[in-house]
Design a protein around this nucleic acid. Structure first.
Length: 255
DNA sequence: ATGGTAGCCGCGCTA
């Protein structure tokens, strides 16, 4: 069972790439972020024609999440019941007995800003709700764009990024609290190459210089982590013409 | 040196 998460940065622009990638990768469950589409514009037919069922929650211009699955997603929840939020950033569904939470965690803009406070509050509410979901569904995956580099290993230039947005201690502590619920960072269950990143700024030749951060994650509850046999980042997607600034991240789970 | 690039019903904002 292959699980993937990808911030597409506009599904309208990236749909052809998504369809090619689905055909090539044969992922079973895919969590998308930054679809930037209102629901009535969502390309449901194209995705169903590719062999996936899909649930989505989007808005114009910003945010937007979707969950694609080979099997029917059931018990769908849109948004965090503990955190009313006009921004469409969260979606959960059960696929084949596995609870999948697709999250687009706020970026936070800069440490100390209003958006930063929103990010930390959003994370606190996420922790509370995922804790409940986990109690009800022991087989749980939390996947998406976390906008947090958990560790200095996940940063191309830790000195320059120290204390900055995506790397600050409060953000990293929030990430650790999610792990504290009993989740594992699937990527770190395995030996990985140095300088493995999932996002590179479009500016300043960020990708060409591998000046990136690892901010996209798939966290797995213990029963899933025990069956996780591989995890990786599909870096080649960032080499394509007109790429998203994020590469997909994947986890392979034995069934 | 506070830049730069991409996406969007934008005429700046978010990332």
């Amino acid at each position: 069972m292959k699980l993937a998460a990808w911030n597409v940065n506009s599904l309208k622009v990236r749909l052809p790439q998504l369809l090619e990638w689905l055909a090539a990768q044969q992922a079973d469950v895919v969590c998308l972020q930054e679809t930037k589409l209102e629901d009535h514009n969502f390309p449901q037919q194209e995705i169903e024609a590719a062999g996936y069922q899909v649930v989505f929650s989007g808005q114009k211009t910003y945010n937007g999440v979707a969950l694609l699955a080979r099997e029917t997603p059931v018990d769908v929840v849109y948004g965090n019941p503990h955190f009313p939020d006009p921004q469409k950033r969260l979606l959960a569904a059960t696929v084949n007995g596995m609870r999948v939470v697709c999250a687009y965690i706020p970026n936070g803009q800069s440490v100390g800003s209003e958006k930063y406070a929103y990010k930390l509050a959003w994370l606190t509410a996420l922790e509370a709700w995922v804790g409940e979901q986990l109690a009800a569904s022991p087989q749980l995956a939390l996947a998406g764009d976390f906008n947090i580099a958990p560790d200095d290993r996940d940063v191309h230039n830790p000195a320059a990024w120290a204390g900055q947005i995506l790397c600050s201690e409060p953000e990293r502590e929030a990430f650790q609290r999610l792990l504290g619920l009993g989740l594992k960072d699937s990527f770190r269950l395995f030996e990985q190459p140095e300088k493995s990143f999932s996002w590179w700024d479009y500016r300043m030749l960020g990708f060409q210089k591998n000046q990136g951060l690892r901010i996209d994650h798939i966290l797995l509850s213990a029963p899933l982590a025990e069956r996780c046999v591989a995890a990786g980042i599909e870096r080649d997607m960032r080499k394509r013409e007109r790429p998203s600034d994020h590469a997909p991240v994947t986890a392979l789970i034995a069934v």
